[in-house]
Amino acid sequence: MLLRLLMPCIIFVLCGLTSLQVKAKSDIIIILDDLGYRPSDVAAFSLPKEITFSILPQTPLASEIALRAEQEGRAVMLHMPMQAQSGKDMGPLGLTTDMFAGAITYNLRKAMKSVPNAVGVNNHMGSAFTGQQKGMEALLKEVKRQGLFFVDSRTTVLTKGEEIAQRLGVPSASRQVFLDHKLEPAFLLKQFNHMKRIAKKNGHVVVIGHPHPETVNFLKTHLPSLEKEGLTLTSVADYFSHAPKVAKQFGKERDLTASLNNADMKDSKVSMTEENALHSSGLMHSSAEKGVAERLGTAPNE
């Protein structure tokens, strides 16, 4: 009799805890950038569609990769070339520190024409450009006008990217892990484990890698293990769902997925037995720790 009286309370508490557990999932956002030059880049399509492709503008394969990604429901970004301290060649449409605002806007618009379905932008190189205010303001004002989001690749600790993006109201994030600046298996695994630790601590992690054959093969082998550890591979389309262009391109698909997930949750609640509810009540004593932000470093390839 007592059990029957307590059951509604137990189920109510457990439903709340289930909701908290869903919210506490750790999101892993992986961006592969530098796509567009090499025929081998298309091997990245063998990876889950949550992996984001960031494409260099006006490269031989830019349009082909962007179109195929769109057909597969993948999110695409523009990998915008920006001046590095090293003076490395940026490739087409690179942004330099001596450019006027109008020239920066013009180059970004022209770059977007070669990757028209891009929903966001991240910097290619840029250790010089992202550290100066006027140029970044001009860039991010145009990013905002086009309804895009911005991911700071953090190729310098002096970057002003996310700071200015937040001030201008541009949806933004910063890279936290570089996955593959060394292609040795042991190093890739070290960075992959580092990625998982940050995700578990902070609730999300933004990772940048490249479509090297070694990286693609490594990810194909190790990504399936994430779910077992309570980690979720998440598309930037979901992470930046509030960005206007993301909402326009992916809104209907996301709403459908959400409705299916809600139906699954209702079914699971209805099927919960009294025995399982009591057995699970020990969850009431668990708690979540708030993560401390990781120190972010400079891109090793600049």
Rank of each mutant, 00 (worst) to 15 (best):
L2Q: 15
L3N: 14
V13H: 14
G16Q: 12
G16P: 10
L17I: 15
T18Y: 11
Q21G: 12
K23D: 12
I28L: 09
I29T: 01
L32V: 13
A43E: 13
F45G: 06
S46A: 11
L47P: 05
E50G: 03
I51L: 04
L61I: 13
L67E: 09
E70G: 08
E72T: 04
V76P: 05
M80C: 06
Q83F: 02
A84I: 06
A84H: 02
D89M: 06
D89F: 06
L93N: 09
T96N: 07
D98L: 08
M99F: 05
A101C: 11
G102P: 08
T105D: 10
Y106C: 06
Y106K: 05
R109C: 02
M112L: 10
K113I: 05
P116F: 09
V121N: 01
H124L: 08
G126M: 00
Q133I: 02
K134F: 09
G135P: 08
V143K: 01
R145S: 10
F150P: 04
R154N: 00
L158T: 02
I164S: 01
A165L: 14
G169K: 04
G169W: 06
V170P: 03
A186D: 07
F192K: 04
N193T: 06
R197A: 06
I198T: 05
K201D: 09
H204R: 06
H204I: 00
P211M: 00
E214L: 04
E214R: 07
T215P: 03
V216M: 01
V216T: 07
T221Y: 00
S225K: 15
S225M: 09
E227H: 10
K228G: 07
K228L: 09
G230M: 07
L231C: 00
T234M: 12
V236Y: 02
A243L: 10
P244N: 09
K245L: 13
V246Y: 07
Q249W: 09
E253T: 15
R254H: 12
D255N: 11
L260Q: 11
D264R: 14
M265L: 15
M265D: 15
K266F: 11
D267S: 11
M272F: 11
T273Y: 09
L283C: 10
K290E: 07
G291R: 04
T298Q: 13
T298P: 04
A299T: 08
